[in-house]
Design a binder for these strands. Structure first.
Length: 271
DNA sequence: ATGCGGACCTGTTAGC
DNA sequence: TGCTAACAGGTCCGCA
């Protein structure tokens, strides 16, 4: 469900409501997520103040004075700040109970998400240390992508979805960005010119920024932390539009599978 | 080192 | 209408 814009939308939604709050306790109803929620997480964070809510790729980081809670939303996760008295529903796996009676509640039906805790520098955490640049930062640029891609036979779509290359480009926005840049998703990453990578970098930045502004993409059930849907869906050019006319040339949008993921593109506009 | 496929889960939708 | 299969926004891991 959540790609980077959805994670960023979530971060912006919860940050002002939990920052500065002391954590009264952690309630874990279902510890079996992508990795087990640490058994001692409650004793680790109990009494700590949430100093800041940051993001690295799609990982949300809740910083306290003694360590960092690392949260990933996986495919179906969402976070909301609600009144603690609101009864937990079936897939509400973890609550961070705050001193003010509110609580940060993680719901994740498919349980691909994660809640971890580290006392070390989170950036050095196993899951974060090999991540590539942030797509909206200046070190993600055409020179970088071009250099990284030389001799790579992998498809350009899988390449930009590789978090070691760049974080935050998920399945929807990969298709959308390649469409905007006019690049065929199956083209080998090593065969894409620097000029095309320049277009691709611009496309990725534009698409992600626009999606963040719209509050993310609601396909099925993504809702922002305030429970409202995101509005990016109406701006999708190719994703989910199999057989529908290309917004640029009118030819039917093609669907195929790349790296086990649904991919949408226009064979006329993308070479 | 690189690339590929499997794995982890449940809910919704498509198809017969 | 009902059952079953396919598919879904992520990404780590092990194997070739």
């Amino acid at each position: 469900m959540p790609e980077l814009p959805e994670v960023e939308t979530t971060r912006r939604g919860i940050a002002p409501r939990i920052k500065g709050q002391r954590i009264e306790k952690v309630i874990v109803r279902q510890p079996k997520l992508r990795w087990p929620v640490p058994k001692n997480i409650n004793q680790k964070v109990k009494g700590e103040v949430i100093r800041d809510v940051t993001r690295r790729g799609k990982y949300l980081l809740l910083n306290t004075d003694t360590g960092t809670m690392i949260i990933h939303l996986g495919m179906s996760g969402s976070l909301r700040v609600i009144n603690c008295k609101l009864a937990a529903e079936k897939h509400d796996h973890v609550d961070l109970v705050l001193e003010n009676g509110q609580c940060l509640r993680l719901r994740d039906p498919r349980r691909f998400g994660a809640v971890l805790f580290t006392t070390d520098d989170p950036i050095q955490h196993k899951l974060l240390k090999d991540l590539g640049p942030e797509p909206l930062e200046s070190d993600f640029n055409a020179d970088y992508l071009f250099a990284k891609s030389r001799k790579r036979s992998i498809t350009v779509k899988s390449f930009i979805m590789d978090s070691k290359i760049v974080v935050g480009v998920g399945n929807i926005y990969a298709s959308e960005s390649l469409f905007r840049a006019g690049i065929h998703p199956k083209k080998a990453a090593g065969k894409v010119s620097k000029e095309k990578y320049s277009l691709l970098v611009k496309a990725i930045k534009t698409v992600l920024k626009t999606a963040i502004k719209s509050g993310g993409t609601t396909l099925r059930d993504f809702t922002k932390s305030d429970g409202k849907p995101g509005y990016f869906k109406q701006k999708l050019n190719v994703y989910g539009r199999k057989g529908l006319p290309c917004s640029h040339c009118g030819k039917a949008i093609t669907h195929s599978v790349i790296g086990q993921r649904a991919t949408y593109y226009c064979t006329h506009c993308q070479k």
